[in-house]
Design a protein around this nucleic acid. Sequence first.
DNA 1: GGCTGTCAGCTTGTCTGACAAGCTAGTCTA
DNA 2: TAGACTAGCTTGTCAGACAAGCTGACAGCC
Lengths: 238, 238
Amino acid sequence: MLENLKPVSRVSVSDEIVDQMAGLISAGALKPGDRVPSEKQLCVQFGVGRTSVREALRSLSVMGILKTQRGEGTFVSAERSRYVEKAMQWDVLLDGKAAGHLIETRLMLECETASFAAERASEEDLAAIAAAIADVQNAFSGPALVEPGRYLEADLRFHLAIARATRNPILVSLLGTIRGSMQAWIAKTVPARAAKSIKDHRKILAGLRARNREKARAAMSAHIRSSSSDLRRRLKQT
Amino acid sequence: MLENLKPVSRVSVSDEIVDQMAGLISAGALKPGDRVPSEKQLCVQFGVGRTSVREALRSLSVMGILKTQRGEGTFVSAERSRYVEKAMQWDVLLDGKAAGHLIETRLMLECETASFAAERASEEDLAAIAAAIADVQNAFSGPALVEPGRYLEADLRFHLAIARATRNPILVSLLGTIRGSMQAWIAKTVPARAAKSIKDHRKILAGLRARNREKARAAMSAHIRSSSSDLRRRLKQT
DNA sequence: GGCTGTCAGCTTGTCTGACAAGCTAGTCTA
DNA sequence: TAGACTAGCTTGTCAGACAAGCTGACAGCC
């Protein structure tokens, strides 16, 4: 019996088109913002049916390389590197209901994010973070939380502003996704811990302002840990 | 002039199918290895044409969530597809920044992963990690690297085994995605640093065996930092 | 002039029916 | 019993049709 015979490579038509077009783009023949020939034209040039062309374009779109606009055309995407972000978002989303895993991943990412942010945050970043804290405060009327929706929105904005301060879009989208898939649970624990959160947030901001990575990380860690334990308790109840 | 008017959301049929199927998978109704209903059946269930179903399946395939086999059917895939790597290669070629963001995210995730693994790794996990290190060693003949392919595979296995030891599937898939997107690129720096890597790996394993979170984290941090600086240098050259 | 409605001609999105190519399992045959 | 064969499923590709949407030009109105 013959060994090491590799399976014959049967590349599908649409995969071949994907390769060719990707080659054109990476070779610079098609630059970001450029318009790709219409599907009909591509059919003629490649000598294939429209189905195959469409599947190829679809693949490149999913990868974030192309972007199609109905009635207008297909274009080479300007901001790329969206693909890895998307792929990682799916990683998180597909794991689904595993609350514990989400909480753990969040803890690890938020702490490191805060640490990086302490190093890199611009004055604008710090201002945006401070504004989010102020908005959280505004959801209160004295000690009572009167606008839970506003609180939630501002709290989310606070965390994302910190992520943005790292200047790393991967971190921003990752944290956004994780937070998004937890949002519903967080909403349930709001009344119980809203007041405490504000104090935590101020401590984190102080760490960032001091450009002190350790302080920022520790403050964020304490915040997430306390918030997570509330979440876990809540989850057990239900 | 009215501001803050958001564009109307016009979700396409196939995108909606993508969402629904991803939902099924994340809810656990479809597990890795399961077979998805045939295209014809899906047409009936969703009440749409085959074109739309096929585009949706294609999207999920590109994302590495499904895998289709002609004449046989479509299955929920166990591992990620190679598309991620391809897409990322282009990104890195055209945009050095993307690489920096990836390296940074990887550093953050790997260090924390090692730390968690030190706490939770079972004996089987440790054995798997040790086996991966041994395999890395086996790619050498004395001081010379004779099987770079084997080296790469074993190195990847080493890192994923540590991720698995955390018992957190989100971390496993996140690291898998990041590493996958860097794989082609890491391959280029292998000859230069293969020997050093083995020493690093042993130190990390020692930290895990000692159940010492700080030691494991520090060892991983040193490893990734040194490896990353090689990568960056390589990037600048091209 | 400047605004508005209309329409032709392009684009992408979807449906349908058809056939090719390939896998599986059961049946038939030597 | 071993191997060949075929029926019935699957995915891959093609072609043609229509719907939905954008653009630009052109006419008509104030």
